[in-house]
Amino acid sequence: METARKKISPMGIIGTVLVSLFALICVAPLIYMLLMSFTQLRSLYIRWDEVTFNLRNYYTIIFKNDFGRSLLNSIIVTVLACVWTDLVCAMAAYGFEKKPVPGKEKLFKIFLATMMVPSQVTLIPLFLTMRKIGWLNSYAALFVPMAGAFGVFMIRQFMKGVDDVYIEAAQIDGCPEYKIFFKIILPLIQPALVSLTIFTFVACWNSFLWPLVANTENSMYTFTVALSLLNSQHDTNYGLSMAAATVSFAIPFALYITMQKQFIEGIALGGVKG
């Protein structure tokens, strides 16, 4: 079969060229963004001979204009969201899959149903709820609601493959319940936790509408919101704006480069957009 396919057909060449071209279109804007980020352009008439490549924009982003703060906010919120989502969802998935809770399947169906609801529907009441409990302009407002039904569903799917024998053996040995969860279950479902962490990381880092509404104080902006505001200024410094976009992209990109296999597998298996 392999040998039969090695023949070079005109269709194959055209296809290869087209797919290569598409891949180029996928990265060209990002390369453009990167190049622009080293410039200090306020007009778009780029004369490359006048462009001096330097890191001044990156210096500004990290040390000036509250940008550094928003970057730090995003990092803190994203890390908290990943840990929190993994923990809460793994606990719930374990309870649903391995414990004889009465009525659990009905409750699980309600959980799943909440996944269908668009975020704009809950946006207004969520904002009012957060205002009532005093969580606006806090990290909690951003990361606590991230632990939704999707994570529970995803980990439960994986938990179905975990043999009850491990749990029973530990119970017979008199292993306390919390130890069974932390020392036996969590290590066994590690691949699912990695996938969920990746999903949560990218979703939280890139999320925009909720942070825009919930955190309106300068010092509590996330990086994505700060990037958006930078772009809506009239006197845009294109170089600075592209540097901010580059930083915003670089962090999930670094994760993608280091964990490409888990990234792709997680999506191919989970198949549900976070």
């Binding site: 606990m91 719930a92 414990k99 004889p100 009465p102 009441p125 709820t129 606590v144 632990a147």
Partner: peptide, 28 residues
């Protein structure tokens, strides 16, 4: 006892989904 543990495991995620998803839908 196992059922009780199970409820404890599910509880945090139940509270989150109730507070930040189910009640907001009804309120909307």
């Amino acid at each position: 006892q196992q059922a009780f543990y199970g409820i404890l495991y599910i509880l945090p995620s139940f509270v989150i989904i109730l507070m930040f998803s189910i009640i907001p839908i009804i309120l909307a």
